[in-house]
């Protein structure tokens, strides 16, 4: 299973990707929405995990653009963010996100959630 991680923090990228790699997922990384869109076809992800606050292109913009592309209409997208405000979450939902995960997270929980989304 291929997972695209979009986060502008190298630490977060590392943690998320190593966590998922340890669960035998294939991981692709991008630093922000622009890069993520650029690598989307190469990564051809089964799941996208994206941060919200990023430079150049934030998570909302990214998700809405992904959803406009027919081949990624069904691809599950999870937000992984420190943003806990409900308004934000609902915007995410309305843009077509599949779920909303909060940082900080426990690596084991992330694996569990990702598996449940991909099943």
């Amino acid at each position: 299973m291929r997972i695209l991680i979009v986060d502008d923090s190298p630490t977060m990228q590392d943690i998320v990707s190593m966590t998922l790699q340890s669960a035998s997922f294939q991981v692709f990384r991008a630093e922000h929405g622009v890069e993520a869109l650029a690598v989307l076809d190469v990564a051809s992800p089964d799941l996208i995990i994206t941060d919200l606050n990023m430079y150049r292109m934030d998570g909302f913009e990214f998700v809405s653009r992904v959803r406009k592309r027919p081949e990624y209409e069904f691809t599950p997208i999870l937000f992984l963010t420190t943003e806990s405000s409900e308004d934000m979450r609902l915007i995410g939902r309305d843009l077509g996100a599949t779920g909303w995960l909060l940082k900080p997270f426990v690596p084991e929980d992330l694996i569990r959630v990702v598996k449940s989304v991909l099943q």
């Binding site: 430079y55 150049r56 405000s85 308004d87 934000m88 909303w100 995960l101 909060l102 959630v113």
Partner: peptide, 30 residues
């Protein structure tokens, strides 16, 4: 679950204006 609401206390309010800002593009050249 991934569909969960936030777990942290909602410390600040976020109005519409703010949302619009957040969605605005940053301009770092990295």
């Amino acid at each position: 679950s991934p569909f969960d609401p936030p777990t942290q206390a909602d410390r600040r309010t976020n109005d519409r204006e703010n949302v619009a800002d957040r969605r605005g593009k940053g301009s770092d050249r990295r």
